[in-house]
Design a protein around this nucleic acid. Structure first.
Length: 490
RNA sequence: GGCGGCGUAGCCAAGUGGCUAAGGCGACGGUCUGCAAAACCGUUAUUCCCCGGUUCGAAUCCGGGCGCCGCCUCCA
């Protein structure tokens, strides 16, 4: 398997070679625990969740680390506003994070370190930088001397002159140079603080990721990921700190996901145009959100809209519908052993080749959009087989469909979709639609009964009137040989 | 201003030098049906923002233009 990854550091797609054969260390910047997560956070989490699932499916032994920033200015300010401690705030928001991620079927990382749990590692890394002349103490703060690190800017493609244009010293900072950034911040009255060689204080934002990633993955490791907005200054500073301290390359492949936008603009707290994960999950199944997030390549911007979520809902519903029909055929026993038609065999062959196709799409810089295209192709093939079974039943269909569904299910697992029992998924949609229609089940049943009476009397006008009325309320009727069924309009 | 990204059908979206430009949503026609729904079959971009260039050959490479977005301050 030749895996290609786009590396922000070089600006190119490169063939991936792990540092140690068969093993991968990956660190992804997690959240700052001060507020609810929005769809942008969901994208980053789901994208790296799928990347890790894929790497494991490809046979790599992956160590996945994702941190929590549980102390910083935003947390201090928000805690003060709410009149609670920073610990309480961080604990609550980490719990909310898990609530959202569990709902989204995002798996836990192998190590989930927190900044406040790694103060000794952080201070000793800062000490190392001071000892090597890359950092200096100033009035209880410690700063990194950007000009001492010649490679500064190599990740984000900037040079020092460009950076000087926008750099300035904020009031209260004690930098020697406007480009320098804080490694350690002296405690202000009332702020949480830890002991250090420079007095009481707390870590700057960037240093925690260097200290924790190197602790768990080594001084050089394979993949570091995060949102594109972290590339500068956060990841640039991580490189500077880490490489200045160790003299070694810090990270081999930098992977950044694109933003979620809304009406073309970046979704962000400051613009106030964000939609929380919890908001979405009130109206849609978590797999719908996952499908939506994976439907575009991870590096491109992804525009959120109510319509695009509805499209994902329809597409997912179509897949579940096929899986349910397949399950029905599998569970029914046909006596006749008719040979399978050619087009059925061809469809099955396509499905059986799905794993290889998806693996090939994923090996090209994690092309989930292309991979999902193959999955949808397979669902059409599955429907063709189902149609074949309905037209000319044969006992040969049971095993064939079981095998095909198994492949589809296994491949979907990598994306974290189609993992529900189809009956239960569809039933849940139906219940939601019934609820939204404002009808009770009894009212619906009696309308269906009334319509069937009208149909028996060949009163098509009345029958259609009832069906159209229900359709407007989001309930679709389907007349089958075994009676009338109702379902949600997916 | 500096740096970076993007512009493919009605909408969403793969494809980055050469087989018929994936797939999804929608729409339309056919099969099925009392009519529908679901499903299947077919149609829906002779063409990939515009203009030049390289090449036997470009959506794909190069130059220029137009438009949109992001980073340069906290941000997934």
């Amino acid at each position: 398997m030749n895996l290609k990854i786009y590396n922000t550091l070089t600006g190119k797609k490169e063939t991936f070679e792990p540092l140690r054969h068969g093993k991968i260390g990956i660190y992804v910047c997690g959240i700052t625990a001060y507020d609810r997560c929005h769809i942008g956070h969901a994208r980053s989490a789901v994208v790296f969740d799928v990347i890790v699932r894929y790497l494991r499916a490809a046979g790599f032994n992956v160590t996945f680390v994702r941190n929590f920033t549980d102390i910083d200015d935003k947390i201090i300010n928000r805690a003060r506003e709410e009149g609670i401690s920073t610990e309480e705030l961080a604990e609550r928001e980490i719990a909310h994070f898990y609530e959202d991620m569990d709902a989204l079927r995002v798996r836990r990382a192998d190590v989930e370190p927190r900044a406040t749990g790694h103060i000794p590692e952080i201070t000793s890394l800062i000490q190392r930088l001071v000892d090597r002349g890359f950092a200096y103490e100033s009035g209880g703060d410690v700063y990194f001397s950007v000009r001492r690190f010649p490679d500064y800017g190599k990740l984000s493609g900037r040079n020092l002159e460009q950076l000087m244009a926008g750099a300035r010293i904020m009031p209260g900072e004690k930098k020697a140079d406007p480009l320098d950034f804080a490694l350690w911040k002296a405690a202000k009255p009332g702020e949480p603080s830890w002991e250090s060689p420079w007095g009481k204080g707390r870590p700057g934002w960037h240093i925690e990721c260097s200290a924790m990633s190197m602790k768990y993955l080594g001084e050089t490791f394979d993949i570091h990921g995060g949102g594109l907005d972290l590339a500068f200054p956060h990841h640039e500073n991580e490189i500077a700190q880490s490489e200045a301290a160790t003299g070694k390359q810090f990270v081999r492949y930098w992977v950044h996901n694109g933003f979620v936008t809304i009406k073309g603009e970046k979704m962000s707290k400051s613009l106030g145009n964000f939609i929380t994960i919890r908001d979405i999950l009130e109206g849609f199944h978590p797999e719908v959100l996952r499908l939506f997030l994976l439907s575009k390549h991870y590096r491109s911007p992804l525009d959120y809209s109510a319509d695009s979520i509805r499209e994902a809902t329809s597409a997912l519903g179509r897949c579940y519908n096929a899986l349910r029909e397949a399950a029905q055929i599998i569970s029914s026993s046909f006596k006749k052993q008719r040979p399978l038609p050619t087009h059925v065999k061809e469809s099955a062959a396509f499905i059986l080749s799905l794993k290889a196709k998806v693996a090939s799409a994923m090996s090209d810089d994690f092309n989930t959009a292309q991979a999902l295209g193959y999955l949808f192709d397979s669902v059409r093939c599955l429907n063709r087989i189902i149609e074949g079974a309905r037209k000319r039943p044969s006992c040969l269909y049971g095993d064939l469909l079981r095998e095909c569904c198994g492949v589809i299910s296994e491949v979907s697992a990598m994306f974290g979709i189609l993992q529900e029992d189809p009956d239960r998924y569809i039933e849940a949609c139906n219940i939601a639609a019934l609820h939204a229609s404002g009808l009770t089940l009894e009212e619906l049943d009696s309308l269906i009964e009334e319509r069937n009476m009208a149909r028996r009397e060949r009163n098509w006008a009345r029958a259609d009137e009832i069906r159209d009325g229900l359709s407007q309320k989001g309930i679709i009727l389907k007349d089958t040989p075994s009676g009338t069924e109702w379902s949600a309009d997916l």
